[in-house]
Computed example of a mutant assay.
Amino acid sequence: MAKTILAIDDSASIRQMVGFTLKGAGYDVVEAADGQEGLDKAKGKTVDLILTDQNMPRMDGLTLVRALRAMPQYRSTPILMLTTESSDTMKSQGKAAGATGWLVKPFDPAKLLEVVKKVIG
């Protein structure tokens, strides 16, 4: 059975590129347009990996990571930040919130797949 990835980004073109890349590698992808929608979708099902942007309307990525980590089914689920934010301060805030890893946009599809395979197979 294919692993399911929740991809959360307010940019439709980023969601499309992430979805295309991951689906092409055999993953099932659920998309959300912001952190609140991502949290709502995460509550409705269990996913194997969450990819989220940081800067989004309604709920940012760090707030989303904290909310997911507070839910029993997502305590150990890998959460990768895929964002334009690249400062060490932001990365350490992400780690403190519970993010598993950090990828900077624009992303290289091959690198994205490499990291996803490393985290969930």
Rank of each mutant, 00 (worst) to 15 (best):
K41H: 13
L68A: 03
D34V: 02
S86G: 14
L49M: 13
L49P: 04
R66L: 04
R66P: 04
A42N: 11
R66E: 07
D60A: 11
D10V: 04
G26N: 09
L62M: 08
T21C: 08
T83R: 07
P78V: 05
E31R: 15
R75V: 15
V18Y: 07
K41I: 00
P72M: 10
T77F: 03
G26K: 11
Q16A: 11
M56I: 09
T52M: 01
D88L: 15
K43N: 13
G26A: 06
A25E: 12
G38M: 01
P72R: 12
G19T: 15
A33H: 00
Y27M: 04
R75H: 13
E85A: 14
T89G: 14
I50E: 00
T63E: 11
V47Y: 12
S76K: 13
L22C: 08
R69V: 09
D88E: 14
K41W: 05
E85D: 14
I14W: 03
T84R: 02
T83F: 04
L82E: 03
T46R: 13
P72G: 07
I14R: 00
D48M: 05
M56R: 09
V30T: 14
A33I: 09
D60Q: 11
Y27R: 07
Q36F: 09
L22Q: 09
Q73F: 01
D10R: 00
N55Y: 00
E31T: 14
G61D: 04
G44K: 12
D48N: 15
R58W: 09
